[in-house]
Design a binder for these strands. Structure first.
Lengths: 223, 223, 223, 223
DNA sequence: GATGAATGAGTTTTCATTCAT
DNA sequence: GATGAATGAAAACTCATTCAT
C-alpha cells in the first residue's frame, strides 16, 4: 500500500489565534480528505494534523478522539449531501420529476465532492458498530425522503400502498443502485452527471422489463 | 470500539498434526469470520489465529501475509457465490426467468453466508489497491453474467443494444441494489429470501414507473 | 548466548521534556553502546531504548529505523575518529613523523572509545550492503589520508610511485594491521597507546626484514 | 536488505539413507554457504536446511543448535585454512622464504574459498562471546606459527628476542593486514594471489621505510 | 532414519493519546 | 490558546526448536 502524500490544497498558512469555528472547519476539511484517501483505520491523526496545519492537541481539544472526529465528518458530509438533494426537490412537483431532480442532484454532488462521497459510502459503512448511529441516521433521512416520494406517487395514482406495504427497502435499493453507479463512475470519469442520472432513472423508473423492449427513460418525457 | 470476542462456533478442538489442506480450510474459515466482523484493518492476525485454533506461524506458512490471506478469502468466497448463482442459471431459459433465479440464488446465498457476504461486500471494495485484482475479477464475472443476460434479452426482442450501448453500468447498479437490500435485510431478518428477491425484481424488472401504477412483479407471471 | 545487561553508566535520570538535539545525542550514545556489545543483528531496539532511558517511539521519531540508527552511529563515530587523527597530522611534517602521530592518535582514540571502535570495526563491515555507503565513505577518507602520505613520502625521496603504483591496498593493509593490534590490545589492556603505536610502526615502517636484524623503530629516531 | 537466493550448486538430490558422515558434510557445506552469504544472525536454519536438501530435524540431530552448527563451521574452515598454510611451510627453510610461502598459500586459499573466508573473517569475529573459543583457538594457532617463525629468524641472526619480547602482537598485526588485503581483493578480483601476497610481503618484510626509498620486496630476491 | 506440522517467544515498527511548557 | 515532547499498547511478521507420524 503506497503512501504518497495527500497533497493538493496547501495547508492554510498556520495563522494564529483563529476563532474556534474556523479551526474546526479546517480540521474537518482535512479529516475528510485524509479519511477518504486512506480509509478510517489507515488514516493517522498525525496526517490529519499535518494536512490541517493544526497541532494534534488542538484536534483533540476541539473534535475529540479519532472516532468522534470521524463521526463528525460523516455527519457534516451527510448533511451537505441531504441539503444538496433537498434543495432541488419540490413537493408540489410530479413524483417522476422529483425523482429525476433528486437523482441528478445526487450525481452532481458526488461529482463535485468525491472525498465526501468516499467517506460516506466507502468508509462509514465499513467500520463496524461505532459509526452505525451517524450512518443510520443519514441513511434514514435519505430513505425517508424517497419513501415519502413513492408513497405520494402511489397515492396520486389512487393505488394506495404498494410493494407489499414497504417502500422503504425499495428506497434503500435505489440508494444502493446509486452508490454502485457512482462507484462505476469513478472509473469512467468521462461521463456527465446527467448521463449517470439517466442511467439510474432507466433502471429505477422503467425497469429492465421496459428496457429490453426498447423503451428507455429520458428527461424530455418527464420535463 | 468494543472488542467482544468473535465467538460462536467453538474452535475446532486443536486436533494435532492435520494435513495442510485441512488446516488451510480452517484458517480461511476463521479469517472470513474475523474479517467480516472487524473489517480488514481492525482484524488482527492474533484473533484469526485464536479463532482458528491455530498458531500464527502456521497461518503465515500456509497463507502468507495478512494481505494475501485476505485476498484468499475474497477469492474463495467470490467463487462460492458465483457458483451458487451460476448453478441455477440456464442460458436456454427466458431472461426474466433467469434473472429471477439468479436473484433468488443470490439472496439465498447471502442468507446462509452472512460472513462471506460481509467480506465480499463491505470489506473487499474498501481496502484499496492491493485487492483490486481479486475484486475486479469477481465483479467482472458477475457483471458479465448479468450483462450478457440483458443483451440476450434485448436481442430476443429484436431491439438490439439498449441503454446507450452499455449494459455494464446497469449490471453494476443491479448488484448495488442487491447489496443494499441485503444490507437492509440484516435489520429485518424475518423476511424470506424469496421476499427479498421479489423486491429486487420489482425494482429492476418493473421499475418504479410500473410500481406506482400498481403493477408489481411476481414469480408466477414469469414462471 | 548470555544476556547480561549492558549496564554501566546509569541511564540519564529521565529528565523530562528535553530538546530534540539532546535526546538525539543520548540515543546515539546508547545505540553505540548496545550495537558494540551485541552486534547489529543481536541488538534490539528495546535494549537501546532501555539503555537510553527513552521510549522507542522517540527513537523512531528522531533517528528512524534500526538501519538508519545504525548508519547514524557509524557516521558519527567515523567522523570522530577521523577528526581525532586529522587533528594531529600536519602536512608540513616529515611523513614518518606524520605516520607516527596518526598511528598514535588512532590508538589513543581506540583506547578511549572502545565502543565506537567496536561498532566501526566489527559491526559496520559485517552487515552487508545497507551500510556500505557510510562505511565506504569513512574507509575512503582514511585510506586517502594514508595513501597521500605515502605518495608524498615517495615523492620527497625522488622515487616516484612505488608499490606497483598502488598505495591504496597498502593503506588498507595498514589499517587492517592497526585493527588487529587494537583487537589484541583488548586482551592486553595493560599496554599503553604509545606501546601499541610503536608496534604498528615497527611492522609498517621497518618491516620484519629489519626487525629480524635487530633494527627496531623508535619515536626518538623520528622526532 | 535483499533476499536473493543463495543459489549455485544444486542441492544434492535428496538421496535417502546416507551415512551420517556424508550428511554432516552436506550440512556443513550448506551452512558455510549460508552463513557466509547472510551473516550469522540473518541466516535461518530454514535456509540451511533448504540449501542442504536435508530436513531441519536432521540438522538438529547431527549438528545440534544453530550456535553449535556455526561453531562447527568455524572449526572446520579454520582447520582447512591452517592445513593449507601448514602444508607449504617447511621449518628448515629460510624464514623469509617461509613467510612468503605461507602468505602465498593464504591468498591462494582465500581466492579459492571465498565462503570459508567470509565465515572466518567477517562472521566469526563479529558474533560476540559464544564463538570466542573456536575463534581464539584458530587465531592462536595461526599466530603461534608466525610467531615461531619470527623467533627462529631472530635467533638465526643472533639477535634474540625482539619487538620488546613479544612477537605475538606483531603476528596478529600481520594477519590483520592480510585480512584487510583479502577484503580489498574482493573489490579488485582481477589481481592474482601472487600479486596480493607480494603486497603483504612488501609491507611486512620491507616496511614503508624501505618502500619510500624505492626498495621493494620481490620473490626472486628471496628465492 | 527422516520429515511435515506445529509453536512460544521475540523483533521491528506504528499509532492514538496526553503532558509540560 | 497552542505545541513539541513523550509513551503505553498493540500489530505484523519471523525464527529456532521440537513432536508425532
Amino acid at each position: 500500500m503506497t503512501k504518497k502524500d495527500v497533497a493538493g490544497a496547501t495547508p492554510p498558512p498556520r495563522a494564529k489565534r483563529l476563532p474556534r469555528a474556523v479551526r474546526e472547519r479546517q480540521i474537518l476539511d482535512a479529516a475528510v480528505r485524509v479519511f477518504s484517501e486512506r480509509g478510517y483505520h489507515a488514516a493517522s491523526m498525525d496526517e490529519v494534523s499535518d494536512v490541517a496545519g493544526i497541532s494534534k492537541p488542538m484536534i483533540y481539544a476541539y473534535l475529540g478522539s479519532k472516532e468522534e472526529l470521524f463521526a463528525a465528518c460523516i455527519q457534516r458530509e451527510a448533511t451537505r449531501l441531504m441539503e444538496a438533494i433537498g434543495g432541488v426537490v419540490d413537493v408540489d412537483l410530479d413524483p417522476e420529476e422529483q425523482l429525476w431532480r433528486g437523482v441528478l442532484a445526487f450525481f452532481t454532488f458526488v461529482g463535485e465532492n468525491r472525498d465526501s462521497w468516499q467517506v460516506l459510502h466507502r468508509q462509514a459503512g465499513t467500520q463496524g458498530a461505532p459509526f452505525a448511529a451517524e450512518l443510520a441516521e443519514g441513511r434514514r433521512r435519505a430513505v425517508a425522503m424517497i419513501s415519502a416520494l413513492l408513497d405520494r406517487a402511489a397515492g396520486r395514482e389512487g393505488v394506495g400502498a404498494f410493494a407489499e406495504g414497504r417502500t422503504e427497502p425499495l428506497a434503500a435499493a435505489l440508494t444502493g443502485a446509486g452508490e454502485a453507479l457512482a462507484e462505476w463512475w469513478l472509473e469512467h470519469p468521462e461521463e456527465s452527471p446527467k448521463a449517470m442520472a439517466r442511467r439510474l432513472m432507466n433502471l429505477s423508473w422503467m425497469g429492465f422489463g421496459n428496457l429490453v423492449l426498447g423503451r428507455a427513460w429520458s428527461p424530455e418525457k418527464s420535463a
